[in-house]
Design a protein around this nucleic acid. Structure first.
Lengths: 220, 220
DNA sequence: CAACCGCCGGGAAAATTTCACGATCTTGCT
DNA sequence: AGCAAGATCGTGAAATTTTCCCGGCGGTTG
């Protein structure tokens, strides 16, 4: 599927950005944009009918986000080739994306050639990571910054997610059917494990690691 | 400057997005892209030499952000026409942008025609706000959601900024040369005025209102 | 089986948040 | 000028929360 025409699907909620993709990609012979979606749900639906050779996927989108869309598409077609193209210059997001089944991760700050190169690499079966993310990943390894998901147990992670999403300790206790005391204990333990002193730092860490996206906060 | 050629400068840190702008704009006769910048500082520098008729400006950029860039450009040229084009579908950001001197605010989710229309309107001397933001603004007025900056005094706002940026109460007290006790009192008062119960909600509110941008958190 | 670990919570000490109260200073109004 | 309002800063004490230490329960592993 490399030698001749390759069908590509674009997924991004910003029309102007899709216009940009198209402008960059159509300069490459052998690439055709056959479908466009503006959120994760539409991406999944269109993928099944269009069966593109490659998906270029944004992460931050309304409703079903990019990570979840990658997961669903890969579940439907284990061989799907998905290249994540996002503004998030963040090792945490990259790890999540690759784990979800993406074949590449390129940031939007990258020059167009990097995108084209990544498209070609992924089509050729390779994994494509843009240089800035390579660097981020290297740094996070060197500094031993264990991504929250690793150091926390499943339960702790669940509590953290609720702490960031819900309002009070008592509400979380009710959701989990445990005593408020337990939630408070977990809350404290989480801050300890993550090495933060205050809730504010906790939120900042979560944002940095991509546990929370800025759009999640709007619908509070 | 409307009838014939209009010189436009693009400011966005994502190359592919600039490509998208160009692709959309060049379909309009009479518009020429004469300069491109990828951060606020470069935008200010280039504006002074290129003197474009219109600037299309993104908000979230590394270093000097879009709001500050708008402010500086308007300070240098009171007649500068700047159209903010951003992903933030957020009344708070829009208010900040217009106060800083922008002549328009359009979100990236808008269809290309909306952008083109806004460009024309701003060039014609009008103020252009995209419909979704109009709606957001209306909602925020109706719900009486007073933007943090309004209900807080200057001092309180400063403390809030430090709370979100620095680490401990004591560090903030030292920076402000007041007793830690005062900072704690202010901290409490701020949460009261903003109607939030926990620090986590405080951060979420701040994010929603654009007091803190996601990029600010990276360099923590 | 014994040892360990995640999970759940009680109790008490420690720390923090909240509240009530002045004192001082600026600002705006008459 | 005189006065009222409110912003700022601080104190101290009460109320609440956070933190720490403890034990019990169930599952897994050596």
């Amino acid at each position: 599927m490399n030698g001749t025409d390759c069908a590509i699907m674009l997924v991004d909620d910003h029309a102007v950005v899709r216009e940009g993709y198209r402008s960059v990609l159509q300069k490459q012979p052998g690439l055709r944009v056959v479908a466009e979606a503006c959120d994760g749900a539409e991406a999944y639906r269109l993928f099944k009918s269009a069966k593109p050779d490659l998906v270029i996927m944004d992460l931050s989108m309304p409703g079903i986000g990019g990570i979840e869309a990658v997961r669903r598409i890969r579940q439907w077609d284990k061989a799907a080739k998905i290249l994540v193209f996002t503004m998030h210059q963040n090792a945490g997001f990259a790890v999540q994306a690759i784990r979800a089944g993406a074949r590449g991760y390129v940031t939007k700050t990258s020059p167009p050639e990097t995108l084209v190169r990544a498209v070609m690499d992924v089509l050729a079966g390779k994994i494509a990571i843009s240089p800035d993310i390579d660097h981020e990943l290297a740094l996070s390894r060197l500094s031993g910054e264990s991504s929250a998901a690793d150091v926390l147990t499943a339960r702790e992670f669940e509590v953290l997610r609720l702490l960031l999403a819900e309002r009070s300790t008592d509400e979380i206790a009710e959701t989990l059917h445990v005593s408020p005391k337990t939630v408070a204990n977990l809350h404290s333990l989480i801050k300890d494990k993550l090495g933060v002193g205050s809730d504010i730092e906790l939120v900042r860490l979560a944002l940095r690691q991509g546990l929370l996206t800025q759009v999640d906060l709007g619908e509070a």
